[in-house]
């Protein structure tokens, strides 16, 4: 245990909040899928990893700006979500919960190890001059790609929020997540709702992958750490609770960054697991209760 100075603490707070924004975006997708379909999507991290590689290869092969590649990663991973939902998830919608979890675990094992085979375990990073810049904000050093990622993550989460609040389809999704039978009774097309919800969920993960690619090592296992963090966030925020996931992302980002300042090394990841188990044991309903959009 080291006692850091005030400057380090302030720096950790800022970094934690910036990273927390990205966690929020991933978790919003995960909680949406859980809320509507009652499925814990273990493959969420692998989808995010695919987003990272899309951005990486678009830049390396075609020179596409990483943030422009959002226009590629979001729709293509939305499509991946639809395909997964159609062929793999929908056949097990009525199966026992642990079987559903096993299914998504199987999907994630497959995608991750396929990526390992195709792209090798090498750590890759984007070398882009304007993204190497950092600036001083008072006593705090801020790097450009983290700020951009934070802003984009907020904007994208906001778009999903307004979609859920203001559009008919969004209202349908919220209705289905609160009361499936009731939603069906008032004529909501559940099938369509499932597709869209799963697609938006995976698109969020993909977008998050694109956003972290400029300042994170791109590798096949990159998603695995994020998915556990997202689990923590989603449980903390209340499974299926949109605002809970959003705020939870910021909280976990802060906690992780401050934890790392006090206890360096691999212990950071360890602490995420400890928090996860503690929350599951003592606060399984989360800080803010369940259900979307409250």
């Amino acid at each position: 245990m080291t006692i850091p100075g005030a400057g380090v603490v302030l720096q950790s707070i800022v970094n934690g909040l910036l990273m927390g924004g990205v966690y929020s975006l991933i978790s919003v997708g995960l909680t949406l899928i859980f809320g509507v379909m009652k499925i814990i999507n273990f493959a969420h991290g692998s989808i995010m990893m695919l987003g990272m590689y899309i951005t990486y290869w678009l830049y390396v092969l075609l020179g596409v700006d990483p943030y422009l590649s959002l226009f590629m990663s979001i729709p293509s991973l939305f499509l991946v979500g639809l395909i997964l939902q159609k062929f793999l998830i929908s056949p097990v919608m009525g199966a026992p919960e642990h079987n559903q979890l096993l299914l998504t675990l199987g999907i994630s094992l497959f995608i991750e190890n396929l990526a390992l085979l195709v792209w090798t375990p090498n750590f890759r990073s984007l070398e882009i001059p304007y993204l190497k810049k950092a600036f001083l904000l008072g006593p705090v050093m801020v790097t450009v790609p983290k700020v951009i990622a934070f802003v984009f993550a907020l904007v994208l989460s906001g778009i999903v929020y307004f979609f859920l609040k203001k559009t008919d389809l969004g209202r349908g999704i919220r209705a289905a997540s609160e009361e499936r039978e009731g939603a069906m009774a008032v004529g909501i097309n559940l099938k369509k709702v499932f597709y869209v919800a799963f697609g938006i969920g995976t698109a969020c993960a993909g977008a998050a992958g694109t956003l972290v690619a400029p300042f994170f090592y791109v590798n096949p296992q990159a998603g695995a750490t994020f998915v556990i963090t997202a689990f923590v966030v989603v449980v903390l925020g209340g499974m299926g609770n949109f605002m809970g996931a959003f705020l939870g992302g910021l909280i976990v980002g802060l906690a992780e960054s401050l934890g790392a300042a006090f206890m360096p090394g691999q212990i950071k990841q360890f602490i995420i697991y400890v928090i996860f188990v503690l929350v599951l044991l003592f606060k399984p309903e989360g800080l803010f209760g369940r259900n979307v959009g409250r």
Binding site: L103, G106, I107, S108
Partner: peptide
């Protein structure tokens, strides 16, 4: 294993 898991569950 992943593919097998998916196959068996479905």
């Amino acid at each position: 294993y992943g593919a097998l898991l998916v196959f068996v569950i479905i």
